[in-house]
Amino acid sequence: APSSAPSGSSLPAYFIKGSIIQLADGELKHVEDLKTEDFIQSAEISSELKIDSSTVERIDDSHTHNFAIVQFSVGEHRAQVSVEVQVEYPFFVFGQGWSSCCPDRTTQLLELPCTKLSVGDVCISLTLKNLR
């Protein structure tokens, strides 16, 4: 399992600026340099994974300190999925890049350039290709 980010966050180390990410074609990139096309092309190569569009429908960060519940509408069937994440957890928004509920905290803890995640943003998510 990957080590965690330095003190203040328990997010995985691969979200820290400078982390090296391997795309499906073998190319190496820094996490902060990833583009939408990198994810799309990697998913096209993958035999198991496909990318779904997940639209942010609601963000509730009022209940638990440093945590937020993000509700998504996933895929063409618009399935409703809610996830509880730390407010600094970065999602990748189509055509925009890394975004989180609290971009200041993401930048402070991970040094990852980040914008504010908002209702209506379309995030990249994964599903299995042959899910029955």
Partner: peptide, 25 residues
């Protein structure tokens, strides 16, 4: 002396959340 350390390389799909809807039986 600084010992060379291997740099971890993470697969691209680590960065993307799985948001598969729960299958209802």
């Amino acid at each position: 002396n600084v010992e060379p350390r291997s740099v971890p390389v993470f697969p691209w799909h680590s960065l993307v959340p799985f948001l598969a809807p729960t299958q209802s039986d």
